[in-house]
C-alpha cells in the first residue's frame, strides 16, 4: 500500500471502520449521555493525529450544530414534565425535555462524527478496493468510483446547458413560475446527453473486456498488516467486554 505518511491514514479500511462500528454499538450499550458525548473528543483526537482536524471540525459545525439546536428547541418546548427550569409566555423549558434532548443529541453527534471521520480518513478508492477483496463485484466498485467522477462533470455540464438555454431565450429569472419553467429545458438535455454518454462508456468498457468472467487485477494495492489485525481484535474484545458488562448490570 502506498505510504500516506501517517499512522492512521495508513491503516486498512476495515480497521478504520472499527471506529464507527465501535461508537454505534457502544453508545447503545452504555446508556449515559456523557459517555456518548465523549465520543466527539475521541474523534477530534483521532482527527488531530491523522491531520484532518480542520476539515473534520468544519463539517461537524456545518452539518450538526443547527440540527442539535433545533432538537433542543423542539424537545424542550413539547416534552411533558413538571420540573420547569425557565419559562417565557407559553414557552417553558422542562427538565425532562432537556434530559431527553441530551440523550438524543449525544447519540446523533456520536454516530455522525464517527462516520464523518471515517470518510475523512479513508479514501473511496480504498473502500471500494477493500470491498472488492471481500467479494463485491468489480462492476460495483467501478460504479462507486465513476459516481465521484460524474458529479463534478455533470455539474459543469449543467452550467453550460443553462448558459446555452439562456442564450436561446429561456428565462431563468423572474417570477416563481418562470423560474420553475426554466427547470425542464436545463434538466432535459442534461439527462439525455448523460444517458447517451453511458452507451459510449459501455462500448468502451466492453472493448476492454469489462464483463468477462475471471480474476481481475488492480493497480491499486492494499495490504493488511499485523497492526491492523491487532487493532481489530482489540476493538472487538472491548465491544464484547462492554456487552457482557451491560448484561451483568441488567441482571
Amino acid at each position: 500500500m502506498p505510504n500516506k505518511g501517517n499512522f492512521i491514514l495508513n491503516l486498512y479500511p476495515s480497521t478504520k471502520f472499527m471506529l464507527p462500528l465501535f461508537v454505534t454499538i457502544s453508545i447503545f450499550l452504555v446508556p449515559s449521555y456523557l459517555f456518548a458525548y465523549m465520543m466527539l473528543p475521541l474523534c477530534i483526537a483521532i482527527a488531530l493525529i491523522a491531520g484532518v482536524a480542520k476539515q473534520f471540525l468544519n463539517l461537524i459545525v456545518k452539518g450538526l450544530l443547527l440540527l442539535v439546536l433545533f432538537i433542543f428547541i423542539i424537545q424542550s418546548v413539547i416534552a411533558p414534565g413538571e420540573e420547569i427550569i425557565w419559562s417565557w409566555g407559553i414557552i417553558s423549558i422542562k427538565e425532562e425535555g432537556v434530559m431527553l434532548s441530551l440523550t438524543l443529541t449525544s447519540r446523533i453527534v456520536a454516530i455522525a462524527s464517527a462516520f464523518l471521520l471515517f470518510f475523512r480518513i479513508t479514501s473511496i478508492r480504498d473502500i471500494s478496493q477493500a470491498l472488492e477483496k471481500v467479494g463485491m463485484s468489480p462492476k460495483f466498485s467501478y460504479a462507486i468510483l465513476a459516481t465521484f467522477q460524474f458529479i463534478p462533470e455533470i455539474s459543469k455540464r449543467s452550467k453550460v446547458i443553462m448558459d446555452a438555454q439562456k442564450a436561446r431565450g429561456v428565462e431563468t429569472e423572474g417570477s416563481l413560475l418562470t423560474r420553475t419553467k426554466a427547470f425542464v429545458p436545463v434538466l432535459g438535455p442534461l439527462v439525455l446527453s448523460s444517458i447517451a454518454n453511458t452507451e459510449e462508456r459501455a462500448i468502451t468498457l466492453e472493448t476492454r473486456a469489462f464483463s468477462t468472467k475471471g480474476k481481475k487485477t488492480s493497480l491499486h494495492k492494499l495490504h493488511k498488516t499485523k497492526t491492523d489485525m491487532s487493532i481489530q481484535i482489540l476493538v472487538i474484545i472491548f465491544i464484547i467486554f462492554l456487552a457482557v458488562g451491560r448484561v451483568m448490570i441488567w441482571n
Binding site: 460504479a143 459516481t147 455533470i154 436545463v186 442534461l190 453511458t198 468498457l205 469489462f210
Partner: peptide, 22 residues
C-alpha cells in the same frame, strides 16, 4: 443489473446532486 443499468447508477446519483444544485 446489466452493464448499461450499472452505468446508469452513477448518472442517477449525479443527477440527484446536480438537480438540487440547479
Amino acid at each position: 443489473f446489466t452493464l448499461l443499468a450499472i452505468l446508469l447508477i452513477p448518472v442517477g446519483v449525479a443527477l440527484n446532486f446536480v438537480s438540487s444544485q440547479v
